[in-house]
Design a protein around this nucleic acid. Sequence first.
DNA 1: CCGGTTAGTCCTGATTCTGAACTTAGAAGG
DNA 2: CCTTCTAAGTTCAGAATCAGGACTAACCGG
Lengths: 162, 162
Amino acid sequence: MNRFGEMHCSIAQAVSVVGEPWTPLILRDLFLGVRRFDDLARDLGVSRNLLTQRLERLMAAGVVSRRPYQERPVRYEYHLTEAGLDIVPALMVIMAWGDKWATPPGGPPAVLVHSCGRPFTPVVACPHCGGPVTADTVTATAGPGAAPGPGTWVLAGGLAPG
Amino acid sequence: MNRFGEMHCSIAQAVSVVGEPWTPLILRDLFLGVRRFDDLARDLGVSRNLLTQRLERLMAAGVVSRRPYQERPVRYEYHLTEAGLDIVPALMVIMAWGDKWATPPGGPPAVLVHSCGRPFTPVVACPHCGGPVTADTVTATAGPGAAPGPGTWVLAGGLAPG
DNA sequence: CCGGTTAGTCCTGATTCTGAACTTAGAAGG
DNA sequence: CCTTCTAAGTTCAGAATCAGGACTAACCGG
């Protein structure tokens, strides 16, 4: 997803890093505590060469890091960096959407429990008023980095709204 | 992304619908008010055959619908359904992550304004206690639909945690 | 009749993904 | 010493998907 990385759009930027096929599931497994290459490959059923590529890209982007858990031969375990941990809430919001609109047969495969002790479905809120963030309660306006270009002509005002 | 649709995992389910290349950006444009095929193709720079495929898939999944805005010849405009509007908050959380960890040159291209009148960065919260949802404050446990299979061996307990 | 608009479809070459076998480096067992 | 096992990749051929541009269909305005 190299083309997306050149767009002046934060969604495109994020997608170019964490939106490639398999990547969200790799991040999910890392969050769940899967640490090793073979475990990731086995759990997901992803081909090993692709897993190598994805982990390399995630490390280059600073989302995942690895450290040796043994020498001779060197074996690494992978885990989320600060940036990687920071994307976990987004994964949970996506999971909640999947639970609601594309429920897998048998019901939700996972239930989230908050540190307050209760199972929950995450909500997205405005930090100022605490109100819900929905398509109806939000407007997007051009920011300082808005520039006309592929994927951003709309925001920069170069494409007449329908 | 058909393989993901068979996994017993709500993230995989969601990704199989809204995670294909270009799809998040198509949804973004629809939220921003772009309605027509040609406008979408021009704004994003996506090839027209792929845009056709993506819109078909999104309509089949109930995320996007279209209605004719003229007859002879029939011309459609596309918009988000309830399910499509419901994924907008997730897009905003992803956008916020992109702003923070993969800032496009020049700063954030877009700024969100809430109905309370203030620009904001969305936060993910627990609806019970109102506390923040982060990787540290959340645990995932097996739900009713948990089943061993590709992408879910971990959750179902079939893969020893590291 | 000619050009313009809108929404696609069709085709070809390039890129990416899958699946399986192979490699490397050492450990364990007999 | 020989074989088998584990872990983390690497390599390769065939299949699937994507990009980009040309083409089609249906109508409008002049």
